[in-house]
Design a protein around this nucleic acid. Structure first.
Ligand SMILES: Nc1ccn([C@H]2C[C@H](O)[C@@H](COP(=O)(O)OP(=O)(O)OP(=O)(O)O)O2)c(=O)n1
Ligand SMILES: [Mg+2]
Length: 787
DNA sequence: GCGGATCAC
DNA sequence: TATGGTGATCCGC
């Protein structure tokens, strides 16, 4: 709840005052209450940890220490100091882009996002305590002059690409962690660099006063050639930076200023007067030849980034990724820091490091460790015996590596994604029809995204967040891989229905819903559908009149649990002894790719074999680079067991589907280019869906007219109380109905008379929808009315 | 395999 | 008035 101040630019501010403002703004809110609940949970875990700790005998403790020392020795022996890893991180990235494009923001406290949520803030605003992941309205309270700029995600993507183009010159295999952050292994570059000519290490740097209306294009792209020519003629050598004999400390202190390592460079002026690109007057500039070592290489890289984008970056240089990450924060903004490749330098750096600085140790882990008297990495070492007993092996090893300052040294691209999801926050909705409409929207978006990356998945999940901020997730694994909207929606809807039923007769009041697909495989790797059978059944389905026959056929692969109740999850009792540690997470993302299995991958699902090559390449590139070969036609993903021709107008299923896609395309005009997992991860809308009305109506419309997949089913479905009946079992012949099931929410209704039942249905439907449904459904209501 | 929790950005 | 979205991992069932 309180202010997080572990980020850069948050030193020495009035924490007490800031916390009070945050508290006042939050107190009593549902958000706040939930935060407190979570905090209580953490405290319980800490108590549990204490309890466990007391049970440890001195003998066990001694044993733990021996075990730990043994592990430490092993790890230390495997320490790899041979690589030079660089972590580069743009300064206040989104905010910097916005300030660049609107200089009037430059000297104001500003943040990017909206009143509901901020993505980041500039350093001026950070002084007030305004930071990323803070709601904008609180930011305003902390700093009334705060200017909030909406996100321009496309711009950040474009800038990111510019930056990455430069990074690839230093490590073609660099690993982007986000739009503004990446790891590089510069070991090879430095070796190559030792043979670079001056020309290859020389760049032009603008010298420009703020507010000067001059060209800001990258001079290295406009006039580099001619300027370099000149200097070669002059055999200029004066600007070579050399830092070889300073000790590390001095070098890191110098690092703040980019050019401190050279004699004051000559100010130059091009013989041209205006830029060929932008037409503005060319600025004065200097010509700088960077040195040979890593630090100069990194300065050069950062400098080029600044020339190209006019944005600054900070960098960390260290023998492994864990350390490099911490270093990049050390001299932020616009600075760099190096840890030399020797154990002493590493240990010296690590010594008093607060554990929270380490990537993977977050708020909760910090608190749990603090409870053990651990604040720094040295404490971590001293408590190794305890940690051995209290934590899992994975966590323990992670901690021990931290003690030793060891981290991953293999910088590699991400492997393929494991899941894809889409979720949205909105103003409260609780009527089933709105909930299902939202679910449908999300399913459509997800299906679209899956297709864009040519993926199919086997496990569909939903996520819901109640208005009290309680989060639940539910998943269901399908028998076949799919990216078919209707199949996804059917599965998601069933999961949602269970949640609705779980809280009935109370409404399920949500502020967020998400749909997720995991168990992903590239389309071409999915088991082939029994084409003939599927399509055959489909044809039968579309031509058959009998409603009942289409159901429970072989194509019906969505679990129908009828009314069976879901075990309610009691969060309070679910005290996890230790809710886990992320640890190596980040580094693992970049770790060596899983081997392409020889057989295993195929055994499970009888996938196509012919894509092994492609797959390897796929792994080595950003994960959604397109593949060259396409296999086969679009095998229609899966039958849609749920589709039911209510209005027997004929447009075949496929066309309906395509219509949907088209509609989406129109609505969502901005067809993005292919994105990597990483890039999509940044793509957060910080706005709450308030336009719920329209979109809901749109979807509702679809449900009631064009769509075959209707919300639940558009009729009153009388059914027996037993769980064998599925929602699709609509046979009207049943005459011994005991209960009514609301067609919208699938809830059994116990009302004695039809009127109260209808009242319930009313509450589930908005006015427009109900008119349609009622007229369509009149006939069915009769049997029910007999009761 | 599922659900909750944690973490990064 | 108002507290985000995406992806991943780990733990304990
Ligand atoms: N909870 C968060 C954290 C970050 N971001 C976005 C906005 C940031 O601009 C970008 C990069 O994140 P950083 O953690 O690197 O933060 P900044 O670059 O903004 O600031 P710094 O100068 O501290 O790196 O990611 C976000 O959307 N949500
Ligand atoms: Mg940054």
């Amino acid at each position: 709840m309180l202010l997080n101040d572990h980020k850069a630019g948050m030193e020495g501010l009035d924490k007490g005052k800031i916390n009070k403002i945050i508290m006042d703004a939050s107190k009593g809110s549902r958000f706040y209450e939930n935060e407190r609940k979570k905090e209580d949970q953490v405290n319980k875990r800490i108590e549990e940890q204490r309890r466990k700790m007391k049970e440890i005998t001195p003998t066990q403790l001694k044993d733990g220490e021996l075990q730990a020392d043994s592990i430490l020795e092993d790890f230390d022996g495997m320490r790899d100091l041979s690589r030079t890893i660089v972590h580069i991180d743009m300064d206040m990235f989104y905010a910097a882009v916005e300030m660049r494009d609107n200089p009037s923001l430059r000297d104001k406290p500003m943040a990017v996002g909206g009143l509901s949520m901020l993505s980041t803030s500039n350093y001026h605003a950070r002084k007030f305590g305004v930071r990323a992941a803070m709601p904008g309205f609180i930011g305003k309270k902390l700093c009334p002059e705060l200017v909030i700029v909406p996100l321009n995600f496309d711009k950040y993507t474009a800038v990111s690409k510019q930056v990455r183009d430069i990074l690839s010159d230093y490590d073609s295999n660099f690993c982007p962690m986000s739009l503004d952050e990446a790891y590089l292994d510069m070991t090879d570059h430095v070796i190559k660099r030792s043979r670079f000519s001056d020309k290859e290490r020389t760049y032009l740097l603008r010298k420009v006063d703020k507010h000067q209306n001059v060209c800001l294009c990258d001079l290295n792209e406009t006039i580099w050639e001619e300027e370099i020519q000149k200097s070669q003629n002059n055999c200029e050598e004066n600007n070579v930076s050399s830092l070889n004999n300073c000790d590390t400390k001095d070098r890191n202190m110098d690092a703040k200023t980019n050019y401190s390592d050279t004699e004051s460079p000559n100010v130059l002026r091009s013989s041209d007067t205006v830029c060929v690109i932008c037409g503005k007057p060319l600025p004065d500039f200097e010509k700088k030849t960077f040195g040979f070592n890593v630090e100069d290489a990194v300065r050069e890289m950062r400098s080029r980034i600044e020339q190209r984008t006019t944005l600054t970056a900070s960098a960390g240089i260290a023998p492994n990724m864990m350390l490099a990450k911490i270093c990049s924060d050390r001299n932020k903004p616009n600075g760099q820091y190096i840890i030399q490749n020797n154990k002493d330098a590493v240990m010296e750096f690590i010594k008093d490091l607060p554990i929270r600085k380490i990537s993977g140790i977050g708020k909760v882990t910090e608190k749990m460790l603090n409870a053990l008297g651990i604040q720094t990495t040295t404490d971590l070492y001293h408590q190794r015996a305890l940690l051995f007993h209290l934590y899992s092996q994975i966590s323990f090893h992670y901690f021990m590596r931290i003690c030793l300052g060891i981290g991953s040294t293999t910088v590699e691209r991400e492997s393929g994604r494991k899941s894809m999801s889409t979720e949205r926050t909105f103003r409260e909705i609780s009527t089933p029809i709105e909930l299902y409409a939202k679910c449908r929207e999300l399913s459509e978006a997800l299906a679209e995204d899956l297709k864009e990356e040519e993926l199919k998945g086997k496990t569909v999940g939903i996520k819901v967040k109640t208005v009290k901020f309680e989060v639940k997730t539910r998943v269901q694994t399908l028998p076949e891989y799919t990216c078919d909207v209707d199949t996804i929606f059917t599965a998601a809807r069933d999961l949602l229905r269970i949640e609705i039923q779980n809280v009935a007769p109370q409404p399920l009041r949500l502020r967020l819903m998400g749909v997720r697909m995991s168990g992903l495989l590239h389309q071409t790797m999915c088991k082939k559908q029994q084409n003939t059978l599927t399509s055959l059944l489909k044809k039968m389905e579309s031509t058959q009149q009998s409603v009942s026959s289409s159901k429970s056929s072989a194509t019906s692969f969505v679990k129908m649990e009828g009314i069976t109740e879901q075990p309610s999850v009691n969060c309070d009792e679910n005290i996890c002894t230790y809710a886990n540690e992320e640890r190596s997470l980040i580094e693992k993302n970049c770790l060596s790719l899983p081997e392409i299995p020889d057989q295993d991958a195929y055994s499970e699902n009888d996938m196509c074999y012919n894509e092994v090559n492609h797959n390897k390449e796929y792994h080595n590139k950003l994960i959604n680079d397109k593949t060259q070969d396409e296999i086969g036609s679009n095998i229609d993903s899966c039958g849609n067991p749920d589709q039911e021709e209510i209005t027997s107008d004929d447009p075949v299923t496929s066309s309906t589907h395509e219509d949907t896609v088209k509609q989406l395309d129109q609505i969502d005009g901005s067809k993005q280019t292919v994105k990597s997992v990483i890039d999509k991860r940044q793509e957060s809308s910080l706005k709450i869906d308030t336009a719920g009305q329209e979109s809901t109506q749109k979807v509702t419309q679809k449900f009631n007219t064009t769509q075959k997949v209707t919300p639940p089913t558009q009729r009153v479905t009388p059914t027996k109380g037993d769980s064998t009946s599925t929602k699709d079992d609509l046979s009207l012949e049943k005459d011994t109905m005991e209960k009514l099931v609301c067609p919208v929410c699938f809830m059994e209704q116990s009302q004695a008379d039809l009127d109260s039942f209808n009242q319930h249905v009313d509450s589930c439907l908005n006015k427009d929808a109900i008119m349609q449904i009622l007229t369509e459904q009149k006939s069915w209501q009769k049997p029910a009315a007999k009761r």
